[in-house]
């Protein structure tokens, strides 16, 4: 649905923000783009609704090339692509109702349609009681909900999120991400989500691309990229996410076990310990969820018993790297 081919973007000052980006985003997926500040994420996402023009390369949405669009063609595309922002971008001088109505008014909707549609949108984001308030009277999370309702007003197929949760506390972030996940499932909305936080990608994305210095250094399913990172930049992002990435020293054979799906809930270690007489020391571990799937990743020290047999048994339940 979204297709980027060898996209370059250099700013007037000569700075190359994007240096050859290829990307393919499918209809109905939640696609994350993660990278450090300055990596080019905002520039990339702004290409998708023509807020920014590439200096070279191709940007297509549903087969429509964006560089051929201007005037009414570009405005029509923008009505199909909603966008939300880190600082919300609400109009402080307008009520919540009028903020959400604005895209409809711009699209030329009549009064009756606006009067019907806006309450529907506000109810969808859980703000039905706040229509007469002004943005300054809302919390950050509520403001972003208004932003989402506004972005959805013209029934877009695609929602672009530029650091949409970066100004929010962790709990509010989770609730906004849960809302985005629901919208993706219920409306089949394609979501492109820019973030510098691994946690955001883990909670809501299906696939992810890692952007570094204007290039995609790694892309794939969140499970692949998160559990089996290949690029050094990805590993660094994941490591920063945990508290202390330095491995504990252990005198003996080591195994890094990755479990996904049902295996996470099985008593794998104790069973193998009983059967092989090998004891396990857990040196490092993460257990949790990637969007809706569970995962576990443990670094184990093996001690005593038949360690070869224990390793073989571990391999039957998940991936093992030494």
């Amino acid at each position: 649905m979204i297709h980027l081919e060898n996209v370059h973007k250099a700013f007037a000052n000569g700075h190359a923000a994007l240096a050859g980006v290829d990307l393919e985003i499918a209809r109905g997926e939640v696609f994350g783009i993660i990278g450090r500040s300055g990596a080019g994420k905002s520039t990339l996402v702004r290409l998708l609704n023509g807020l920014e023009r590439p200096t070279a390369g191709k940007v297509e949405i549903d087969g429509i090339a964006l560089d051929g669009l201007s005037g009414e063609g570009l405005r029509a595309l923008r009505r199909r692509v909603g966008m939300i922002f880190q600082n919300f971008g609400l109009l402080g001088s307008r009520t919540i109702f009028d903020n959400v109505a604005l895209p409809l008014r711009i699209a030329g909707a009549d009064k009756a349609r606006i009067a019907a549609r806006v309450p529907e949108l506000l109810a969808r984001v859980g703000l039905a009681d706040h229509r007469a308030k002004y943005p300054a009277q809302l919390s950050g999370g509520q403001k972003q909900r208004v932003g989402i309702a506004r972005a959805l007003a013209t029934d877009p197929d695609i929602l672009l999120c530029d650091e949409a949760t970066s100004a929010l506390d962790p709990e509010t972030t989770r609730s906004i991400l849960a809302l985005l996940g629901d919208l993706n499932r219920e409306l089949g909305l394609t979501i492109v989500l820019i973030t510098h936080e691994m946690e955001v990608v883990r909670q809501v994305c299906d696939r992810v691309a890692v952007l570094h210095a204007g290039r995609v250094v790694e892309a794939g399913s969140v499970a692949d990229v998160f559990l089996r990172p290949r690029a050094a930049e990805t590993r660094a992002l994941i490591d920063e996410d945990g508290e202390d990435a330095r491995p504990l020293a252990f005198d003996g054979p080591l195994a890094r076990l990755t479990l996904q799906g049902d295996a996470v809930l099985q008593p794998v270690l104790t069973r193998i310990a009983r059967e092989t007489g090998t004891d396990f020391v857990i040196l490092d571990g993460r257990i949790g969820r990637l969007r809706d799937a569970s995962f576990g990743q443990l670094t184990l020290g093996l001690s005593g018993g038949n360690t070869e047999a224990a390793l073989a048994a571990l391999r039957q339940h998940g991936e093992v790297a030494a």
């Binding site: 807020l51 971008g89 895209p103």
Partner: peptide, 24 residues
């Protein structure tokens, strides 16, 4: 961000001026 949000809705420059910039 407010200006960009209004542009991203598909606003004309006239919409941008009269519906967003001047009221804000």
């Amino acid at each position: 961000n407010t200006i960009e949000a209004v542009q991203a809705m598909g606003a004309t420059t006239r919409d941008l001026v009269f519906r967003a910039l001047l009221p804000e």
